[in-house]
């Protein structure tokens, strides 16, 4: 299944700005080892598009705006052809799984990074 890794601001540009250290490659490498077809959502890493729920918007009542903000991420996902999105951040994961997927008919599965790793550890014959 085609998968794509989403760069959350919390582990990427925000971390870079606040602590001088970003984690762009680690999540990618792990994802790449778990899936066979890893695609990039360009622009990525420091220039990645927001899931729409950044800045705590997921917890706030402005849902119309949030969905609107997420339209670019949704389009990017649709164009990439990926059906599995790996989102290490809970905020992004919720936004994409519970909101963008429905609002934009993306038909995608969204997983945390740890979920992906956990799922990958299951031996096929034990499934």
């Amino acid at each position: 299944m085609a998968a794509a890794y989403h760069d959350p601001c919390n582990y990427g540009r925000k971390s870079l700005k606040a602590f001088g250290q970003a984690y762009f490659e680690e999540g990618r490498e792990i994802t790449g080892n778990c899936v066979t077809d890893l695609r990039e959502l360009n622009p990525n890493r420091n220039g990645a598009y927001c899931c729409g729920a950044g800045g705590g918007a997921w917890a706030l009542p402005y849902s119309d705006e949030r969905v609107y903000y997420g339209r670019i991420k949704a389009r990017q996902i649709a164009e990439s052809g990926a059906h599995l999105i790996v989102a290490p951040c809970h905020n992004c994961r919720d936004a994409m799984m519970k909101s963008l997927n429905k609002e934009y008919d993306l038909n995608i599965e969204v997983k945390y990074l740890w979920e992906l790793v956990a799922d990958s550890l299951i031996m096929p014959e034990k499934e």
Binding site: N42, P43, N44, R45, N46, G47
Partner: peptide, 10 residues
């Protein structure tokens, strides 16, 4: 290095 303009990728 800045990547956002897609230079070096596109």
């Amino acid at each position: 290095e800045a990547k956002v303009w897609g230079y070096g990728i596109q």
